[in-house]
Design a protein around this nucleic acid. Structure first.
Length: 477
RNA sequence: GGGGUGGUAGGGUAGCCUGGUCCAUCCUAGAGCGUUUGGGACGCUUUGACCCCAGUUCGAAUCUGGGCCACCCCA
């Protein structure tokens, strides 16, 4: 909350840029004295609120929000073998109540399957109880041993949206998987963040899932960030936690389940994908302030201008816009830089010339300047906000397209891998994937790619030459 | 997982090797006053720090040990 106003590192040095923007734009303070636990500043928290309100509004179409406990007893946590294996080395344990050692250790949830599913076992009795679709937005804890990074890799995930659904059969659960993929797409479209959807290789799926569909964003440096996952859990957890129902014929059947997660990494994506050398570029859908009014106070007309600004602010607010008027005693230029750092989508200037001409000067966050008549300002501002959103989405799309390369051979892949994600063909064998990862020093991100930039065509495996499907390789955060 | 660098005021730095005259310094930071205001204003006044815990010592930002935290590079 101490703003410096000059010398933001260039975004080409992404790490330095990211750390500075997160701090200077009042998103996150990393100085909390525990590794991987960070503090949300009010501004960052407001951005989080708007983003999660959007997510809630999408989920509430077919889910209900609930809340399960943070602590999970060891015996429940240890029930599902694969799940344990996936998480055991990164779980925090509560071992004492005061000075007394606990008989049953309690895990801080790294994710909540084992907290929720014992309850689902009690709640699901008949086919009439299904489908059951709940979600919660909570903090989860993972003892990360790798380098932590605000919003990207943290030990307390403060904003984990996890959806857990229960269905009568595998097919119905699979439809839910598709539905949730569409939901994620809509969410990220609203944020202007282009995504790549793919199926994670088997060895990289969620521990205990049939398969995992991942949503990735491509960062300025060409590395990918997983910003959402949808898992088809099959009946693995239903078996373990005894989630059964009586079907129409009176038979007991195992349920089929999905889960779906999105975290504050979605905010990391907004920041990283849209930001520029001046700071944040926020989509109007979630910007805490959508419009900032800058009164240009010159000479003796100050009061007149402030009154005009107040009137405009009231008018825009009445139309439901999030508006602020910056009346501080600063040079206008300094204010422009300030609000640009904070990513405000649209700036409206009102000065003596504008009063005389009955107009307003609008500049969007990408620097596009427009003069609008004072009359009908609400409609004009809304139009400009929509245009601004289209512009940042287009810019982000262009970036994604530019960083998606194709390669037929390992040599070609190595030539274009630096700073890019690369589509290759892969036969599906683990051995070939291992070899490919080793030869290219990258990771196999996924197959069954859903992206207009990657054709779903047959080819020859880049390693063994057998018939193969497209796969993506790259470096991830 | 492996290696490296570092922690001094809101931010950026110097000092550390060689312990003490160290009241350190700069600012894009904060406070106050005045003049200003169509792309980062100016003047004056002023505020504020040696990551934590032990140890060595008459004396530690500085040396020793441990811890915590941050950042960078490689697998």
């Amino acid at each position: 909350m101490a703003e410096e106003t000059e010398g933001l590192p260039s975004r080409t040095d992404f790490s330095a840029w990211y750390n500075e923007v997160i701090r200077r734009a009042d998103i996150i303070d990393v100085r909390y004295p525990v590794k991987g636990l960070n503090v949300w500043y009010p501004f960052g928290f407001a951005l989080r609120q708007h983003t999660y309100n959007l997510l809630r509004s999408l989920l509430n179409r077919d889910h209900e929000e609930a809340l399960f406990p943070l602590l999970i007893p060891e015996n429940e946590f240890m029930k599902e073998a694969e799940h344990i294996k996936g998480f055991e080395d990164e779980v925090y344990w509560v071992t004492h109540g005061g000075l007394t050692p606990l008989d049953v250790k309690l895990a801080l949830r790294p994710t909540s399957e084992t907290a929720i599913y014992p309850m689902y076992s009690l709640w699901v009795r008949s086919h009439a109880d299904l489908p059951l679709k709940l979600y919660q937005i909570v903090n989860t804890f993972r003892y990360e041993t790798k380098h932590t990074r605000p919003l990207i890799r943290v030990r307390e995930i403060t904003s984990f949206m996890e959806s857990h659904t229960v269905h009568t059969d595998w097919e119905d659960a699979n439809n839910q998987v598709e539905y949730e993929i569409e939901l994620a797409k809509e969410f990220y479209r609203e944020l202007g963040v282009p995504i790549i959807i793919s199926k994670r290789p088997d060895w990289d799926k969620f521990p205990g899932a049939d398969f995992t569909i991942a949503v990735d964003a491509v960062f300025p440096d060409g590395r990918t960030l997983q910003i959402g996952t949808v898992h088809h859990l099959g009946d693995h957890f239903a078996k373990t936690f005894d989630i059964t129902y009586e079907d129409v014929n009176g038979e007991q059947k195992l349920a089929s389940q999905t889960c779906f997660g999105i975290s504050e990494r979605s905010l990391a994506a907004i920041i990283a994908v849209h930001g520029d050398d001046k700071g944040l570029v926020l989509p109007a859908t979630v910007a805490p302030t959508q419009v900032v009014i800058i009164p240009i106070i010159v000479g003796k007309r100050g009061d007149e201008i402030l009154a005009a600004a107040a009137e405009l602010e009231a008018e825009l607010k009445a139309a439901g816009l999030r508006v602020k008027t910056d009346k501080r005693d600063m040079r206008p230029g300094a204010k422009y830089y300030h609000w640009e750092l904070n990513g405000v989508p649209l700036r409206v200037e009102i000065g003596p010339r504008d009063l005389d001409n009955k107009q307003l000067v609008c500049v969007n966050r990408l620097g596009v300047k427009t003069q609008i008549p004072r009359e009908g300002a609400v409609e004009s501002v809304n139009r400009l906000l929509n245009e601004a959103h289209d512009q940042i989405l287009e810019k982000a799309e262009n970036h994604l397209e530019a960083h998606l390369k194709h390669a037929e051979t390992v040599e070609e892949a190595n030539e274009v891998l630096e700073g890019n994600v690369v589509a290759v063909h892969w036969c599906g064998d683990r051995e070939c994937a291992d070899k490919l990862e080793e030869l290219t020093n990258s990771a196999l991100l996924g197959t069954e790619i859903r992206s207009k930039y990657v054709a779903d065509d047959e080819g020859r495996c880049i390693i063994c030459g057998k018939p193969a499907k497209p796969a993506l390789i790259g470096r991830s955060y």
